[in-house]
């Protein structure tokens, strides 16, 4: 469950990226965040895992109060909220298996648990047969699927994806969407910022349109609604 009320975010350069935003997202929802470039989509999702802190307002994510949260609790929020980026951020010197295992090792999971879970998530994203390969031996879509596998390895309740298909061709983008859909079916909340109108219009989910730092449209089974 995510709840934001009356949230403002002003960057130190004076730009107000979020300008009085209110939203409520329930556990298990699939939400698209759309809007023009510079509208504040990234800032909006970054505040959910406390990469950015609001200047004003309240943000509750699960049991975490993100405004007056203690620095030492942030790691636990990050285990509750998984994140995927447009540029994958894989470690080039580690194999696919090691890349995913890494996310579990650094939160000190038991090696036996790690082994089982890594294979499980790589199977889920359809890459179990490529565990020994290195990121540069994989296509963009495959690399993004590894990044998704890594993001869900620690079983977050929420998965945030900021333009996960932005660097991919349309066909590969669909591979990613199928994986996200599957993860959503298993009960994980998905929040995805995107420019891809085809995806939003075909794979119907709730749509939040952001403009000038405010939500201007909140539509169940919504349309993309902008020229593409």
């Amino acid at each position: 469950m995510i709840e934001m009320s009356n949230v403002y975010k002003k960057y130190s350069n004076g730009i107000t990226a979020i300008n009085g935003l209110n939203i409520k997202i329930d556990q298990g929802e699939f939400v698209y965040v759309v809007g023009p470039s510079g509208a504040g989509k990234s800032t909006f999702v970054k505040m959910m895992y406390r990469e950015e802190v609001p200047t004003q307002g309240k943000i509750q994510v699960g049991k975490f109060n993100l405004v007056n949260m203690k620095q030492k609790d942030i790691p636990y929020l990050r285990r509750y909220v998984g994140v995927v980026f447009q540029d994958f951020k894989l470690l080039p010197r580690l194999t696919i298996y090691e890349n995913v295992a890494y996310a579990m090792e650094v939160v000190e999971k038991n090696p036996k648990v790690i082994q089982k879970r890594v294979l499980e998530v790589l199977e889920l994203v359809g890459l179990k047969h490529k565990v020994r390969m290195f990121p540069n031996e994989l296509s963009g879509g495959e690399q993004q699927r590894v990044a998704i596998a890594r993001a869900i390895a620690n079983m977050p309740s929420i998965l945030i994806a900021d333009e996960p298909t932005g660097n991919l061709d349309p066909e590969t983008a669909w591979e990613i969407m199928e994986v996200l859909e599957e993860i959503n079916n298993q009960g994980t909340t998905i929040i995805m910022a995107t420019h891809n109108s085809t995806i939003v219009n075909r794979m119907k989910h709730r749509v939040l349109a952001v403009e000038n730092g405010r939500i201007v449209r909140d539509q169940a089974e919504g349309e993309y609604g902008y020229e593409s």
């Binding site: 929020l77 990050r78 285990r79 650094v106």
Partner: peptide, 17 residues
């Protein structure tokens, strides 16, 4: 720095890093 960024994102504690 990429490793540190990933560690922070997946929830490694500051002392672990």
């Amino acid at each position: 720095r990429t490793e540190i960024e990933i560690m922070k994102l997946v929830g490694a504690t500051n002392w672990f890093i």
